[in-house]
Design a protein around this nucleic acid. Structure first.
Length: 268
DNA sequence: CTAGATGTTAAGGT
DNA sequence: CACCTTAACATCTA
């Protein structure tokens, strides 16, 4: 479930398994994943090279090679990384497999193929070209408020917009709004600085805590929305049956009692 | 069989 | 032009 915390976990996984090893080859099992490069170019750029460091921005993971350019991973809805020994079974939906000289491989597994891999020369250039906003864990309060004060639209859509802030996806947007007890369809224009500050703090808290839980829903607190989201879930605070609504084309889950739509107030 | 699922983006509308 | 919404992408599960 690759939102910012999941991608951060993938980054740590890659750092712990796949750095500083000569790459013998790249197996492209499904070229659909390669949107702006080719199997041939990947092989040419990576062979006999190694991954030397990585950095994350929002939901994008950039891996620097000792050839001087970067590999970019985006995990879409179902992407993940799997490091495994040569004699072990290749993951079911492995689309690209990096073969290392040490008898191990790293697979980019992606059932639905909404993810992708690219080569980029410069990370900042990529971020600028795609107009990505600042990373949700890098931004500071003042910048956050400054950006949000200029936003129109409903709060959930704004949090999901990667060009405003990068890294928050559907599940964590719901979690953040649950934490501040705000209805997902609240207009951002009616939020005062105090409300924006509370959202900012909730973003940092939820994302950091999710990372600490290894982005594993089973390790997140029962007091969160996430373990109860969907199905016949009940609000962990008040026990009310959770409600869903389609907001900005995505399903929002929230507690209709704790997260009432603001009517006249401009804050919380 | 149909609907919906964690994401992004092109295309259409206002 | 700026902004918002919808559909499409590929695949699996409820």
């Amino acid at each position: 479930m690759p939102e910012l915390p999941e991608v951060e976990i993938f980054k740590r996984y890659l750092d712990a398994t796949s750095l500083h090893q000569p790459i013998e080859g790249v197996e492209v099992r499904n070229a659909y994943i390669l949107k702006k490069t080719s199997a041939r170019e990947l092989a040419r750029r990576l062979k006999k090279r190694g991954f030397e460091s990585s950095q994350r921005h929002g939901k994008h993971l950039f891996v620097r090679t000792d050839g001087g350019f970067w590999l970019r991973f985006h995990f879409g809805m179902t992407g993940s990384l799997q490091y495994f020994k040569n004699n072990e079974q290749v993951p079911r939906h492995a689309r690209v497999v990096f073969v290392f000289a040490n008898n191990h491989r790293l697979a980019f597994d992606d059932q639905r193929q909404f993810g992708g891999i690219d080569l980029v020369r410069d990370v900042d250039e990529f971020l600028k070209k795609h107009a990505l906003g600042p990373d949700a864990l890098e931004i500071d309060l003042w910048e956050f408020r400054k950006i949000l004060r200029k936003c129109h639209g409903v709060v959930k859509s704004v949090l999901l917009n990667q060009r405003i802030i990068a890294g928050i996806g559907n599940l964590y947007a719901d979690e953040i709004l649950f934490r501040v007890r705000m209805h997902p369809a609240t207009a951002v224009s009616r939020l005062n600085d105090k409300a924006l500050t509370r959202i900012f703090r909730a973003i940092g808290y939820v994302l950091r805590k999710a990372i600490a839980a290894k982005a594993d829903a089973n390790q997140m607190p029962q007091s969160w929305l996430l373990p109860h989201r969907g199905k016949d879930g009940k609000c962990p605070r008040c026990g009310t049956r959770l409600k869903s609504a389609n907001i900005g084309g995505r399903t929002a889950w929230f507690c209709p009692r704790c997260q009432k739509p603001a009517v006249h107030k401009s804050g919380l």
